[in-house]
Simulated scan of single mutants.
Amino acid sequence: MYIKRILLIIVLLGLVAGGVFSYKVYTAVFSPNTNFNNDEAYIYIKSDANFEEVESLLSDRLKDVSTFRAVAGKKGYTANIKGGKYAIKKGMNNNEIINTLRSGNIPVRVSFNNQETLANLAGRIAQQIEADSVALLRAFNDADFYRSKGFTEANKLAMYVPNSYEFFWNTTAEGFREKMLKEYNSFWNPARLEKSGSIGLTPLEVSTLASIVHKETAKVDERPRVAGVYLNRLRKNILLQADPTVIYALKLHNGDFNKVYKRVLYKDLELDSPYNTYKYAGLPPGPIAMPDISAIDAVLNAEKHDYYYFVANVEKFGYHKFAKTLAQHNRNKAQYVRWINGQNINR
């Protein structure tokens, strides 16, 4: 009897110990382990992060880091870290958190506007994905890549169409560049290609002209009319005489794209540059900035008219006065020159 009692006690103790152990395991795995008040918290894990770095990112968002560490080890996560952006929802348990970190990489929206240079674009994108500006600029300056895709050093800027796109946060610099090429090819759909052909320009030439239109006017409703002027001049082989191209030529010549030019001087028109459309006929070698979609579509849907000239309208700022003849243009220009001289704007 005594031995049976001993054995019974041992069995009971074992069951109790097993129950306690099972309860602790269950609690560690399935009990809520978040420590924040919002509905969810986002963490960004670098592609080369180790488990200690992940643990550090989560430390102030978890009630119990030790149980998270234990469950992560049991599930093999500590040796299989994946970079990306992850959403940890309030009330998640360790099992759910780890499953999310394994397969819940969520995309981010990456946006950029009409950057003037690829260096500016690199800085803008580096604020939105993991790749830094140095890696991005290196990818952007890969001449072999652009050559193989039909771009030149002068027109490669056209491959990046300003818009909002979906990326994974841990996208590499090369991955970003590849995705932008796909987006460029998607942008130039059959409808746009047909319109491009109808005006006698290639997509790259359209982007170049659109960059000039973009710089000439910020008024989206005026862009088709401005585009029409330049198309008229191109068809007649008249010099475009676009001030924004001269400003770009000056920046390129001086190696300073941060300098602001408020006025183009007559001496500037003598600069020998293929971007100086007062000296060289036709379009410049490539875009002078990234034209936004409204400017590209303005060229593709340019207004048909008989205007060949335009100058800033000092009676309706932001817009321009258009002219069919040089005499009419000179009258409009004289009014503008009187106004700008009165502003004491010398450069």
Results as ranks from 00 to 15, higher is better:
W169C: 05
T171Y: 14
A173M: 07
A173I: 07
A173G: 07
R177I: 01
E178A: 15
E178P: 01
E178V: 12
K179G: 02
M180N: 11
L181W: 13
L181P: 10
K182A: 14
Y184L: 11
Y184K: 10
Y184N: 11
N185P: 00
N185L: 13
N185M: 05
S186V: 14
F187W: 13
N189C: 03
N189K: 07
P190V: 05
A191Q: 12
A191N: 06
A191M: 02
R192T: 05
R192Q: 08
R192N: 10
L193E: 06
E194M: 10
K195N: 10
G197P: 01
G197R: 14
G197E: 14
I199N: 00
I199D: 01
I199Q: 02
G200H: 06
G200W: 06
G200N: 07
L201W: 10
L201Y: 11
T202H: 11
L204A: 12
L204K: 15
T208I: 03
A210P: 09
A210W: 08
S211M: 04
S211R: 07
I212N: 02
V213L: 05
V213H: 01
H214Q: 15
K215Q: 15
K215P: 04
K215F: 03
E216R: 03
T217G: 09
T217A: 09
T217C: 08
T217R: 08
T217Q: 08
T217M: 08
T217Y: 09
A218Q: 10
K219C: 01
K219S: 12
V220S: 00
D221H: 11
D221I: 05
D221Y: 05
P224M: 11
P224S: 06
P224D: 06
P224C: 11
R225K: 15
V226F: 04
A227V: 07
A227R: 07
G228D: 04
G228M: 05
V229Y: 09
V229P: 00
V229S: 02
Y230K: 03
Y230N: 03
